[in-house]
Simulated assay, not measured.
Amino acid sequence: MENTYLTTEQLAERIHYTARTIRNELIDSCLFEGKHYIRPFGRRKILFIWENIENEMLANNDDSIALAS
C-alpha cells in the first residue's frame, strides 16, 4: 500500500484544523509518531501519513455512532 505524506499545513487543509492546533494539541495526544506521522531522516520536519489518520478518524466516528444507537 502506498502512503500519502502530508506536511502540517496540508493536513490542516484536509481536516479543517489550524496547523498550530495540530502541532500544539493533536501531536502526541491523538496523533502518534510511527503510526500517524514520521520524522524523515530523524529531522525536525514532520510528515503525516494520511491513510492512517483518515482510518483513525473514521474508526472513531463509527464508534461514536454505535454508542449513540
Results as ranks from 00 to 15, higher is better:
2 E>W: 00
3 N>T: 04
5 Y>L: 15
6 L>R: 08
6 L>N: 06
7 T>Y: 10
7 T>G: 07
8 T>F: 09
8 T>R: 15
8 T>L: 15
9 E>W: 09
9 E>Y: 13
9 E>I: 14
9 E>G: 09
9 E>S: 15
10 Q>V: 11
10 Q>G: 06
11 L>K: 12
12 A>L: 07
12 A>C: 07
13 E>F: 04
13 E>H: 07
13 E>K: 12
14 R>I: 10
14 R>W: 06
15 I>N: 11
15 I>D: 11
16 H>K: 12
16 H>L: 10
20 R>W: 00
20 R>C: 00
21 T>M: 01
21 T>N: 06
22 I>R: 07
23 R>L: 13
24 N>W: 07
24 N>I: 08
25 E>K: 15
25 E>F: 13
27 I>Q: 15
28 D>R: 13
28 D>W: 07
28 D>P: 10
29 S>A: 12
30 C>K: 14
31 L>W: 14
33 E>T: 04
33 E>V: 09
34 G>D: 08
35 K>M: 04
35 K>H: 05
36 H>Y: 05
36 H>A: 04
36 H>G: 04
36 H>S: 07
36 H>D: 08
37 Y>W: 03
37 Y>E: 03
37 Y>M: 03
38 I>W: 04
39 R>K: 15
40 P>G: 01
40 P>S: 01
41 F>A: 01
41 F>L: 05
41 F>W: 01
42 G>W: 01
42 G>E: 00
42 G>D: 01
43 R>Q: 11
43 R>G: 07
44 R>P: 02
45 K>S: 15
46 I>T: 14
46 I>C: 11
46 I>G: 10
46 I>Q: 12
46 I>L: 14
47 L>M: 11
47 L>C: 02
47 L>E: 12
48 F>L: 03
48 F>S: 02
49 I>R: 07
49 I>D: 07
49 I>K: 08
50 W>P: 02
51 E>F: 08
51 E>Y: 08
51 E>L: 09
51 E>G: 09
51 E>Q: 14
54 E>S: 12
54 E>Y: 09
54 E>A: 14
54 E>T: 10
55 N>Y: 08
55 N>R: 14
55 N>M: 09
56 E>P: 00
56 E>W: 12
57 M>C: 14
57 M>L: 15
57 M>E: 03
58 L>F: 04
58 L>E: 05
58 L>A: 07
58 L>S: 05
59 A>M: 12
59 A>P: 06
59 A>H: 13
59 A>R: 14
60 N>G: 12
60 N>K: 13
60 N>Y: 08
61 N>A: 08
61 N>L: 09
62 D>Y: 00
63 D>S: 03
63 D>I: 02
64 S>N: 07
64 S>H: 06
64 S>I: 13
64 S>G: 00
65 I>F: 09
66 A>I: 05
66 A>G: 02
66 A>M: 04
67 L>P: 01
67 L>W: 04
68 A>N: 13
68 A>G: 08
69 S>H: 11
69 S>Y: 10
69 S>C: 11
69 S>F: 10
69 S>G: 12
